[in-house]
């Protein structure tokens, strides 16, 4: 019983936090990733929106949306994950809006950051605190 319980847990993301591998020497920090994306430029506090649940029912599948008027790219980072990068959305000439939605994995309660690179060369940053709960039943 214990064994199968453990195995089941091991399959879930709940176990992710328990089995995080040591950060490799090459794993970039959040600050480094932001610096790489912005080239060290200042970031405005407005101009990009990150929509996410305050509490995620399961950290394995958390719905998020990003939007930034006039953005050419939006980068999303999960600051509390073993590796912070989540994805970068680049908008092409036929993008109907500068927005996108997806579903992401969060290892634990943490701050998720979205940084938009705008077409005028400036940057905007926002973040959201997402609480990740552990369910009641392992089932």
């Amino acid at each position: 019983m214990n064994f199968s319980r453990r195995e089941t847990l091991g399959l879930g993301l709940g176990a992710m936090a328990l089995t995080i591998l040591p950060m490799g020497a090459s794993a970039a920090t959040v600050d480094e990733l932001i610096a790489e994306f912005t080239g060290g430029a200042d970031m405005a506090d407005t101009g990009v929106t990150l929509t996410a649940p305050e509490i995620a029912e399961n950290g394995n599948t958390v719905p998020i949306s990003v939007e930034a008027e006039g953005a050419s790219e939006i980068m999303v980072l999960a600051t509390g994950n073993p590796t912070p990068p989540v994805g970068t959305f680049k908008f092409g000439p036929l993008a109907g809006s500068r927005s996108a939605s997806t579903r992401i994995r969060l290892a634990t309660t943490q701050e998720v950051v979205a940084i938009a690179k705008l077409e005028d060369g400036t940057f905007a940053r926002t973040s959201a605190e997402i609480k990740v709960t552990i369910g009641g039943c392992g089932g």
């Binding site: 599948t61 680049k90 908008f91 994995r105």
Partner: peptide, 16 residues
Amino acid sequence: ENVIDIKMEPAMSTNP
């Protein structure tokens, strides 16, 4: 012509 180009990392959920 491009609409969107997304770089995906391991933090994207199963069945993206």
